[in-house]
C-alpha cells in the first residue's frame, strides 16, 4: 500500500496495460477526498502535537474475484485512489497476485527506489569534506 500510495496516476496508467486486466469491480466507498492531521513530537521525541493537515483521498472497492481493496493516497486524485484500491483488491486474488506483483508493484517499487537513490546521491555530492591545514615544521 505504501508503494501504491506513492504511484502517480500517469505511472499506473503506463504500467497497467502491460499487466493482466483488473477484474470488474463495484465501488463501496469514494473516491472521497479529506484530511489527515499530521503530528510531530515536541523536541523530536517528546509529547505529540498537531503540526497541520494534508489532503488525502480514499477509496474502497470490491472486485469480481471477491477481494475488497482499500486505498488511502496523499493528494486529491480520485482516479489514482480508485486504481490503487482496485489493485489492492486484485492482489488478494491468488490467480493475479504474482503477475501483478511482478509487472506493476515491483516496477513501481524500483522506480521509487531509484528516485530516492538519485535524491540521496545529489545530497551526498553536497556533503562537506573538511580538510585541515597542516603546518610542516621540522
Amino acid at each position: 500500500m505504501a508503494i501504491l500510495a506513492r504511484a502517480k496516476l500517469a505511472e499506473l496508467a503506463e504500467l497497467l496495460p502491460g499487466a493482466p486486466a483488473l477484474p470488474d469491480y463495484t465501488v463501496l466507498r469514494g473516491p472521497q477526498s479529506g484530511l489527515v492531521m499530521l503530528r510531530g513530537r515536541a523536541g523530536g521525541g517528546g509529547e505529540a502535537f498537531n503540526l497541520g493537515e494534508m489532503t488525502v483521498t480514499r477509496c474502497t472497492v470490491r472486485d469480481a474475484a471477491g477481494g475488497v481493496g482499500h486505498a488511502y493516497v496523499a493528494g486529491r486524485d480520485g482516479e489514482q485512489a480508485a486504481l490503487a484500491a482496485r489493485l489492492d483488491a486484485a492482489l488478494q486474488s491468488p490467480a493475479l497476485h504474482d503477475t501483478l506483483e511482478a509487472q506493476v508493484i515491483a516496477k513501481l517499487a524500483e522506480r521509487q527506489a531509484a528516485r530516492r537513490r538519485a535524491e540521496a546521491e545529489r545530497a551526498a555530492a553536497t556533503r562537506v569534506r573538511f580538510f585541515t591545514m597542516a603546518t610542516m615544521r621540522s
Partner: peptide, 23 residues
C-alpha cells in the same frame, strides 16, 4: 478550503529521524 473537507484520521507522530534528507 480545508474547512470543506472531512478529517479521516490523525497520523502517527512523524518520524523525522527516518527523513530522506536533502539537507
Amino acid at each position: 478550503y480545508r474547512t470543506t473537507l472531512p478529517r479521516f484520521a490523525a497520523s502517527a507522530p512523524l518520524d523525522t529521524e527516518a527523513m530522506q534528507v536533502r539537507r
